[in-house]
Design a protein around this nucleic acid. Structure first.
Length: 798
DNA sequence: AGCACGCCGACT
DNA sequence: GTCGGCGTGCTC
């Protein structure tokens, strides 16, 4: 008997292992590892992934596979073994590792219906529920509160429950027709057709000269009613043809040709091309300031890979995955490029994924999950803006795209390029140690000077009586740009895009009733919303604590900046970009387009405007509050501040006009601000490494974060304590365990959270020990209401 | 995760 | 005496 071992789509500790199934004879030659199948699992049907196919000798009685969901495997051997690796590295369930590699369209959609068997009469009460139908959806019975009745009827055999499994997304098809007659037959047929069949005759005549050719119904211009009649008469044949949805329909990309590289670029690209040619794995850090021409190096490296008959993956942060950016790849590589980003519909992503899987494209440009692109012969993986934290997934499987890229490159013996102007400390340290190869692009293409940076001490401004959010320096420069007709970008370095609500009399802050966080205020609907649990309520107009009417939204949101700006400079045309103004699809693009077309003088926004903007008329960049994120309880806050300020400064003067940058701050002496102004990465690196060494943080130590949650604070705390006691003896004395302490966000969704942080250098046992912890608490904790989550190499410590 | 089974309290 | 609450254990 041929059998398959299958991972079922049930994410739980107890089901996190393969289950064996019989392969029915009709699928003997079809079912292969890497395919999705539908299998019976207990009383229901679920999706599963075939890991292995084998010939079984011992005569176990196994349930047979119900049917395959794919004709060809959706995961190749490399991806299957990558899933093994990911499962171990990130401590996730195998099923999560498999699912993350596929587009959402391929996730299973489950439904249940209750059907009459017809063998026995059913209870009159049931008849009313069925209301003359043969089957009804499960939900309908559940809503009617009849599940207990149903169960009884199922037992005595008068009803049955049918479980169905489908893929979420579907292939898009188009109806095609062809005329089966020869040209002579065609004209004869038209002769003998009824006089009143005008449309049908017209339709047939359309085919003269092109019979036996498949054409889409649309191309023929025939109505579906006419087509139906002709098909019935046997003159036409029809079929459904699979087609791709085209997110770029109607767009033409002018092709471009490789640029001539500068000496600097040539030096940097040579080792990469050598690695590609020789087929050796290895990680390169391409360190170059904005405007130093990293992208051209990517493009030419990819060209080499394509010439060699291999494929390339390019990862970019979601936020900079703009058409502006992807166009560059489309222009160079034309139809060989697939693009994967969150703006695509589920169906569009599915189509792009299939193009990759079928090798119809050579290059994929996409965000984090594109690192799993199902190519068969990868020649290069590029991660642009390597330092971006969005490469780390914050839900299971908690993977970092950089680690996955390096793992895949080892399989394919191909290089990885990490590109950044401000590499993460971890990466730069590895490059210095020689683990990665450091390639530096020292100069900007065309040797354009870096913009002059003016750091303004806002404490000084206040002392001298300027209480506005604009320093005199920034304000003067703003006015000057307005007069000259040049453009300005104002950057609000702040995470809370919307503000919170505070009472000016008693200091009450509107917090979420379920979580220990303040809720954010959404002006358009006058609502308060919790970003952790989704709770919403109407914003109060009087303080619920003291009854004061002086309760209002507070915090310098972009809206507030805009208001003040309009007061001071009423003639300024402002585009505001934040969550409120970019909510609708394509709004982001539209606003940027407007700014590019010089329909506005000032672009005001948050994080989202820091990347990829490249407009010739920007000559001033203002950072309103450079240090807001510096004071977050996060050991990476200096690094993030430095990266952001460096990034933002790079926006000014990228073209012929010289640029200026004004950075407003309350801590002008801080090294991350000073060194960002100088664009001095090397010194920042030295300084920050010292801080990390003192604090015992990466890259000197690795981190693992354990978070325990429970409805009762005491339970969470005691479990966290027990976990620490349990793991301490299993680790070497060099490991440091911090905590347990209450999490910085002590409660989410009415669950209290405690955490402990493990700092370690070399702990070969660690994942095993942590896995034991998870197993232990999944058994015992379930009845107890306890939840344990573990994040290896965390980026969010809250 | 579901889903069934099974064992105890509150009702006709 | 039954209905239905949710603790327990299993799913090839």
């Amino acid at each position: 008997m041929k059998t398959a071992s299958v991972i079922v789509d049930v994410a739980a500790m107890q089901t996190d292992r393969p289950f064996d199934y019989e392969i029915p004879d009709r699928w003997r030659e079809v079912i292969q590892p890497g395919m999705r199948v539908i299998v019976p699992f207990g009383p229901r049907h679920v999706q599963g992934f075939v890991l292995d196919v084998k010939e079984e000798t011992e005569g176990r009685k196994l349930k047979p596979i119900i049917e395959p969901m794919d004709i060809v495997p959706v995961l190749n051997e490399e991806l299957l073994s990558l899933a093994d690796w990911l499962t171990i590295e990130s401590l996730c369930f195998k099923i999560s590792a498999l699912q993350v590699m596929l587009p959402a369209a391929m996730k299973a959609k489950y439904s249940k219906v209750i059907r009459k068997t017809g063998e026995q009469p059913i209870h009159p009460e049931m008849e009313t529920l069925f209301n003359n139908r043969e089957e009804i959806p499960w939900e309908e019975a559940a809503d009617a509160g009849k599940l207990a009745h149903i169960r009884k009827e199922v037992k005595n055999g008068s009803l049955e429950v049918i479980y169905s499994v489908k893929s979420k997304g579907r292939k898009k098809t188009v109806r095609m027709v062809k005329c089966t007659l020869s040209d002579t037959e065609l004209s004869e047929t038209v002769e003998i057709m009824a006089k009143n069949a005008v449309k049908q005759k017209e339709a047939l005549l359309f085919f003269s000269g092109r019979t036996n050719q498949w054409l889409t119904l649309k191309e023929t211009g025939i109505s579906s009613a006419t087509a139906k009649a002709l098909i019935e008469k046997g003159y036409l044949q029809e079929k459904q043809e699979e087609m791709y949805r085209d997110p770029h329909s109607g767009q033409d990309f002018e092709s471009d040709t490789p640029l001539v590289l500068t000496e600097n670029q040539k030096e940097a690209i040579t080792p990469i091309l050598d690695a590609i040619n020789e087929g050796t794995s290895g990680t390169f850090l391409l360190h170059g300031v904005t405007g130093s021409g990293k992208t051209e190096i990517y493009l030419q490296s990819i060209s080499r890979v394509i010439e060699k008959g291999q494929e390339a993956i390019v990862l970019v942060p979601e936020i900079s995955l703009t058409p502006q950016m992807t166009e560059r790849f489309k222009r160079r590589f034309g139809n060989d490029v697939a693009v994967l980003h969150s703006g695509l519909s589920i169906g569009e992503k599915y189509d792009e994924w299939r193009k990759i899987s079928r090798n119809e494209v050579k290059v994929v440009v996409g965000a984090r999950s594109a690192v799993f692109a199902p190519f068969q012969n990868i020649g290069l993986i590029i991660i642009d803006e390597e330092h971006e934290t969005s490469y780390k997934q914050e839900e299971n499987p908690r993977y970092h795209a950089r680690d996955v890229a390096i793992q895949r490159s080892a399989f394919y013996n191909c290089p990885v390029i990490l590109g950044s102007a401000t590499p993460s400390l971890e990466t730069y340290a590895r490059a210095k140690k020689g683990v990665y190869t450091l390639l530096s692009l020292e100069s900007r293409v065309n040797d354009r000077p870096l913009p002059a940076v003016d750091i303004v001490d806002m404490r000084e401004e206040l002392r001298e009586g300027n209480r506005s959010m604009f320093s005199r320096s920034l304000f003067d420069k703003l006015k000057d740009r307005l007069e000259k007709g040049e453009q300005t970008v104002l950057f609000l370095n702040k995470r809370g895009y919307s503000s919170f609500i505070i009472c000016r009399d008693c200091g009450y802050v509107a917090g979420c009733p379920n979580c220990d966080v303040s809720m954010t205020y959404h002006r358009h609907r006058h609502q308060l919303k919790c970003h952790y649990c989704g709770y919403e309520e109407l914003a109060p107009s009087v303080c619920p604590e003291c009854g004061s009417e002086h309760i209002r939204h507070f915090g310098t949101g972009t809206q507030k900046v805009e208001e003040e700006l309009l007061k001071l400079l009423p003639q300024a045309r402002i585009i505001r970009m934040d969550v409120d103004t970019t909510g609708t699809k394509g709004a982001h693009e539209r606003l940027l387009r407007k700014f590019a077309d010089k329909e506005a003088d000032i672009l005001l926004g948050t994080q989202m405007i820091a990347k990829g903007l490249d407009f010739p008329h920007i000559t001033l960049v203002g950072v309103l509050s450079a240090d807001t994120m510096l004071h977050l309880p996060d050991f990476r806050s200096s690094e993030k501040t430095f990266q952001l300020l460096t990034q933002v400064s790079g926006r000014a003067g990228r073209h012929t006009l010289p640029g200026e940058v004004v950075v407003q701050t309350y801590t002008p002496e801080h090294y991350s601000i000073q060194l960002a102004a100088e664009q001095n990465y090397e010194s920042f690196y030295q300084q920050e490494m010292m801080m990390r060494k003192m604090g015992g943080y990466p890259p000197f130590y690795y981190l693992a974060l354990i978070t325990v949650s429970h409805e009762e604070a005491v339970e969470a705390a005691s479990a966290a304590n027990k976990i620490v006691t349990k793991i301490t003896p299993s680790l070497s004395p060099a490991a440091v365990i911090l905590g347990p302490v209450a999490s910085p966000i002590a409660r989410i969704n009415n669950r209290y959270r405690w955490q402990c942080l493990i700092k370690y250098k070399r702990e070969p046992n660690l994942t095993d020990v942590l896995k034991e912890v998870l197993e232990h608490y999944s058994k015992k904790g379930k009845s107890n209401g306890l939840m344990v989550s573990i994040d290896i190499h965390p980026y969010v410590l809250m």
